[in-house]
Design a binder for these strands. Structure first.
Lengths: 342, 342
DNA sequence: AACAAGGATGAAACCGATTTCATACTGATT
DNA sequence: AATCAGTATGAAATCGGTTTCATCCTTGTT
């Protein structure tokens, strides 16, 4: 029976293991926590670990230390390049530091975000990274009640460590590019409830238009959902009513939908109509007319967020600091007129 | 001080809370676990919970019950449509059942898979879903030592609950399609260490060729990496040495790379060269020549995997059962010759 | 009226670790 | 010789829940 336990390396507790190794429980605990320990004991325990495969129970350890070595990640969706890349970045940094990642996928339902944040609070994670979409008063309330390190990604929020992109700058530069290439661009964006993708990019468009001395007409600006199909629908309407010679889209998905609408109307993208998006997605690189876009460093933002969280956990009650990441404009055929072949 | 604790709803333990609610610890425990409890006590506790926001410590609970309500998910990468969709499916089912998801991203390093599986074993998750890429002897060893419910996705492995796709059938049908459309297709695949995407799809190609009475030449078959660029490189070589009039690719990414290689050589995809991939990715729908592919139900496979895991956890020491999901051939311009405009 | 079955109750044992504390030993410094 | 700082040690307390157990009420049944 004992033999079986030894071989399986399971179901053993520190008391049994200590007896087997010929040392005290305390010594075993010290072994796993780098406490004072003589070389002989250390060796004896090491040997016993090799034989049995014993490892201390995380549950018991967590109960006593109040640390779980887990951090929660709340995100609006998993499918979607940007989110996936952010999470990738987070897991790179956190994995190296021995932290595990508890994922909460809210499937784009803001009320779930609040719910999950609360669950994470209960489950005792050491910290939370929150990929926010929109901020409701409930969000603010639950965030305030978290009482643990929190980092917010892709939005700015006073009093918290945030990592975000210069959405406004990217939108301004892209709109400028559309203008320089000779168009008077219209705008297809997303809900203004989304600070980053909605508000900031819209503002970037408006600023660029004003600076260029162009009329900003509200009829030239419309609000779309996040999908390709949504972009297609909005663009179709726009093309019928306003006949723009350029469209700046708040995301690549929207832009790709818009390009399809253009082509269905017999317009040549990159020539008759210039189109640009934001995000530099894989898809935008393989479309018939490759899409001009702004590359945002999503993976980096994930890494930065993890770093900021580690910092918050290191400095008790302090260490709040935010990071703004830059962008790179990537011009392709959808604004240059040179229609490539793939 | 007590007032503060009440208001914050934090740092309180069951003893303090029980005193505050005017009941015994046991009653509180029963409240949260649906044990025998009079209506009055239930109401009193409910009221106290509302006032304080108290919730039992997961760590303490887990220590005693040996259940964490967490399940581990090990996957080769996060960015990548198929994986993301599988995880999406998993989180849908598991989230509804009150389970949390511990994600381990191995970044395509098989040795890390083994390492993470071991970490998950230690951290006491209630079960594991393993999105496998390849199976080494170390994999088999660590799986055997898990002593907890495990479901394997995208591969078949004797003795475990698996959910996988009919890769062979999909590959056979697609190859058949390429043949019916008049080509003698070559093959670009991935390492045969990958049972599903490597072996099975390759075998499907070979079977279809044989059934059609066509020569299967090893020179017409090559091994590529998983990226678009890898597919591009392999296709380029193939086009220079063998001049095929059709290419069946083991994945959409490879196929998209191959299409680019064709077009750079001045060949018209869908006419001079027919191309097909597997996976029905978003990207394959927006390429200049939309890509014929097989739709695999990734999200469903995630849901099924979660169901199978719940079943394993429900039936102690049994309940092993596997699921094979079908596919749907989606023919687009890359095999039909009708070159669409986006 | 006697008895069985099952609901309701709380004290105490238990889960498996970490941390405190009191004690002991070593070598270096006054 | 006395003091001190640092290393080593293990028994016991502790973390915050759940589960067992013995007991006490109710009912309904015979």
């Amino acid at each position: 029976m004992l033999q079986q336990k030894q071989e399986r390396g399971m179901g053993m507790n520190i008391t049994e293991f200590a007896a087997l190794a010929g040392v005290s429980k305390t010594a075993v605990s010290r072994y796993f926590n780098n406490g004072y320990l003589s070389a002989e004991k250390r060796a004896a325990i090491e040997e016993a670990v090799r034989r049995t495969g014993y490892s201390p129970s995380e549950a018991a350890r967590g109960l006593r230390t109040r640390r779980t070595r887990q951090i929660g990640v709340v995100l609006p969706r998993l499918s979607g390049e940007s989110t996936a890349r952010v999470v990738d970045g987070i897991s790179m940094v956190l994995g190296d530091k021995g932290y595990r990642m508890l994922l909460a996928n809210t499937a784009n339902r803001p009320e779930r975000e609040v719910e999950y944040l609360d669950t994470l609070r209960q489950s005792g994670v050491d910290g939370v990274i929150f990929l926010a979409s929109i901020f409701t008063p409930e969000h603010r309330a639950v965030l305030k009640s978290m009482h643990m390190p929190v980092v917010i990604v892709a939005q700015q929020y006073e009093g918290y460590s945030c990592v975000y992109h210069d959405d406004l700058g990217a939108a301004r530069d892209l709109t400028n590019l559309l203008i320089r290439r000779g168009s008077h661009p219209a705008y297809i964006g997303v809900t203004a409830q989304d600070q980053a993708a909605g508000m900031a990019r819209r503002e970037g468009y408006v600023q660029a238009m004003r600076q260029a001395g162009l009329m900003v007409r509200t009829e030239d600006m419309c609000v779309s959902g996040f999908s390709m199909d949504d972009g297609y629908e909005q663009a179709k309407k726009l093309l019928e009513t306003r006949h723009p010679d350029g469209i700046f889209c708040a995301t690549d998905s929207i832009a790709i939908g818009a390009m399809r609408a253009c082509q269905e109307k017999g317009l040549q993208v990159g020539k008759d109509v210039l189109v640009a998006g934001v995000g530099d997605s894989q898809m935008g690189r393989v479309t018939a007319v490759p899409l001009t876009s702004a590359h945002l460093h999503y993976k980096t933002s994930g890494q930065e967020a993890a770093q900021l969280l580690l910092r918050l956990m290191r400095i008790p009650g302090g260490g709040i600091r935010s990071v703004c990441l830059g962008y790179e404009i990537v011009e392709r055929a959808s604004t240059s007129g040179t229609c490539e072949t793939l």
